[in-house]
């Protein structure tokens, strides 16, 4: 539905000039937002390590070594080993994948579902009451409890974990989208579009959604961070990912009985989880400040 720009050839130089000006402006705000840069660098680092796990892992993350149980960090095992003698460095690298996949997927799914329901609530009067009462009901149940309950009735798998974490996040997005929709609906350019005979789906797609992107992106990053923590927590409680998928939460749960003798078994997965969540939150905060029109439009 997006339109191809009918700009004539004569507009080309203006467009390049505008592009240059915009990229200069972009560079400038990048410099002005160190948390954003720090978060992004950290995130790229963690993601890179997880993606490169098959190549940088020194051991098979599932391989048992009964002779080297709870070994402290050494040259052979940089992060030491766990109670079953599995190499923690390799497991931590592989475990990042679970966290990142869960974070990203939950953020995308929860945001998409939330946008659909929120727009329906904000623009279709009859849907509003139904959708919002449903969301109020979901919000009344604590997130973790809801996720645990959903996990209890299904078989543990990556998909079920993702669904179980997504469902409690949806109401937040719906509320945000609905409130944005209610204010955007009153915007004069939306009223103008109605006066021009633009159909509702087109109005939503062209005039409403693009003006929601900024808060939605920020919200999505926070959902991703929450999802990673929830996944770790569920795995820690034993209702998360199945044992064959290495996860930082599972690793910490496994190591928790041996904290006194093998602190490293909890330390390294915990450190990576904290760093990842922190980086995502930094990116979210940074984006919010950088994209906030009220702050960036100042002289």
């Amino acid at each position: 539905m997006t339109m191809t720009s009918p700009a004539p050839a004569s507009a080309a130089p203006a467009a390049t000039e505008r592009h240059a000006r915009r990229s200069a402006r972009r560079r400038r705000w990048m410099r002005k937002h160190p948390p954003l840069i720090l978060g992004a660098v950290l995130l790229v680092l963690v993601a890179g390590l997880s993606l490169a796990a098959p190549w940088i892992a020194t051991h098979d993350p599932q391989a048992l070594d009964p002779l080297a149980r709870l070994a402290p960090p050494s040259a052979a095992h940089p992060f030491g080993t766990d109670a079953l003698g599995r190499d923690l460095f390799s497991r931590v690298m592989w475990g990042g994948r679970a966290s990142l996949v869960v974070g990203l997927t939950v953020a995308v799914l929860a945001t998409s579902a939330g946008v659909l329901l929120g727009l329906a609530a904000g623009f279709v009067r009859r849907a509003d009451g139904l959708v919002m009462r449903l969301m109020d009901g979901l919000m009344a149940i604590p997130d973790i409890l809801l996720a645990i309950a959903l996990m209890a009735v299904t078989r543990a798998s990556l998909t079920t974990v993702i669904v179980a974490i997504t469902v409690p996040q949806v109401p937040r997005v719906v509320r945000l989208v609905r409130s944005l929709a209610l204010s955007l609906r009153e915007q004069q350019y939306v009223e103008a579009a109605r006066a021009l005979g633009t159909r509702l789906p087109v109005i939503l797609w062209r005039h409403v959604l693009p003006n929601m992107v900024t808060p939605l992106v920020v919200q999505a990053t926070f959902i991703a961070a929450t999802a990673m923590l929830t996944e770790a927590l569920l795995s820690f409680l034993g209702v998360g990912l199945p044992p064959q998928i290495p996860s930082w939460g599972t690793m910490m749960a496994d190591g928790r009985n041996f904290v006194a003798v093998a602190f490293h078994a909890v330390l390294f997965p915990g450190l990576f989880l904290a760093a990842t969540v922190l980086s995502v939150n930094l990116v979210g905060d940074g984006l919010r400040d950088a994209l906030d029109p009220r702050l960036s439009r100042q002289l």
Binding site: Q187, Q188, Y189, P210, N211
Partner: peptide
């Protein structure tokens, strides 16, 4: 200021 969508080009 308010009646034009800030994200669309003049032609659009």
């Amino acid at each position: 200021y308010a009646s034009l969508n800030p994200r669309l080009s003049a032609a659009e």
